[in-house]
Computed example of a mutant assay.
Amino acid sequence: MRELVEVSRYLVLSTADAAGRPWGSPVYFAHVDCVEFLWVSSPDVTHSRNIAVRPEVGLVVFDSHAAIGTGQGVYMPAVAEALDGDDAAQGIEVFSRRCVAHGGAPWTAEDVRTGGEFRLYRAVAQSHGILAKDGSADHRIPVDLSQGRG
Rank of each mutant, 00 (worst) to 15 (best):
H65A: 14
Q90Y: 12
V40W: 11
G69M: 07
S48P: 07
V112I: 09
V53L: 03
V53T: 14
D138S: 07
Q90T: 08
A19R: 12
T70R: 11
G71Y: 13
Y75E: 09
P26D: 06
H128F: 09
A125Q: 01
W23H: 15
T114C: 14
I92S: 05
H139V: 01
L11G: 04
H139C: 03
T46M: 11
A66G: 09
F95H: 02
M76Y: 04
D17F: 09
V57L: 07
I51S: 08
I68Y: 14
V60H: 05
R97L: 07
T46F: 05
V124R: 15
A30W: 07
G103C: 09
S25R: 00
V40C: 13
I141E: 14
T15A: 09
M1T: 03
S14I: 01
G115D: 15
S146L: 07
G129K: 00
G24A: 14
C34M: 06
D86T: 14
E36D: 15
I92N: 04
E36A: 11
A125L: 05
L131C: 03
E56R: 08
P106Q: 06
A16V: 04
A30N: 04
W107L: 03
S136P: 00
S127L: 00
A30E: 10
M1F: 09
C34K: 00
Q126R: 14
S42V: 13
P43W: 14
V57Q: 05
L13D: 06
V32A: 15
E93K: 03
S64N: 04
W107Y: 12
D17L: 08
E81Y: 08
L38G: 10
G71H: 14
D138W: 02
S146P: 08
